[in-house]
Amino acid sequence: MKIFSEMAIRRVLTGIAFSAIAMLILIILFILKEGLPFIFQIGPGNFLLSSDWSPLNGKFGIFAMIVGSLWVTAGALFIGLPLGLAGAIFLAEFLPRWAMRIIKPTIELLAGIPSVVYGFIGVMVLAPIIRDSLGGPGLSIMAASIILGVMILPTILSISIDSIKAVPNSYREGSFALGATHWQTIHMAVLPAAKSGIIAGIILGLGRAIGETMAVIMVVGNAAKIPASVLDSARPLTANIALEMGYATGMHRQALFATGVVLLIIIMMLNFAANTAIKNMVKK
């Protein structure tokens, strides 16, 4: 009897263990089912490479949105990467353990603030500053980049700290013994050894920036055209979906799911890349 119930529990747990992968497959299947037929119906070329988006006239080109996503993601990296990496080096290498145990969770609290709150601060504080000092509409790629940059900071920071901490102390001692200064040791011995972990952090940050929706909608301006400069408005892929999902029907709704397919493919590629980078880190 006891053995019987043990067997049953093992079966149940094995089943449960596949729930995450089952959910993933379910999500991918349903997004593809809604989006792929549409892409093939109007042709991948017309969908991906045309920048004419006017659903009411049956024009569904998302090139401007792809460009928009690339702009804000690159901008977010431009802001988030230097701050995150520098912060990680400083916290991991120069601060005593007790100080890091206070500051690291504090910075990770940044990750807990809802994206709508970031967006709101972008609208109320950042956009007016950009409009008054640099010109343009204010709600722009630049505003979105700064907000997203701050939002991906905790991801980059926290993973970089972990990978810098994982570098064995013998590396540092060897470098000090050769007469290197602390900074030389960091950029010649520690950072190269921590590289793949840091890269994984950057890729995960990238994924977060590309996938972020609500904060971006609020600050990026959402004009469905190819932006001319960072002070211009843009419409990333995520914004395109969320803005029109509320009222879209028929072809239009399918087009939004097709936008989701493109987003999903980009995210999956980033996940694979991050996974490979983490594996490399473990091997060392």
């Binding site: 997004i31 809604e34 994924g207 929706t213 969320a242 989701g260 987003l263 999903l264 995210i267 991050a274």
Partner: peptide, 10 residues
Amino acid sequence: GIPSIIFGLF
């Protein structure tokens, strides 16, 4: 890693 908007669509 899946963005929340995709969860929303799904």
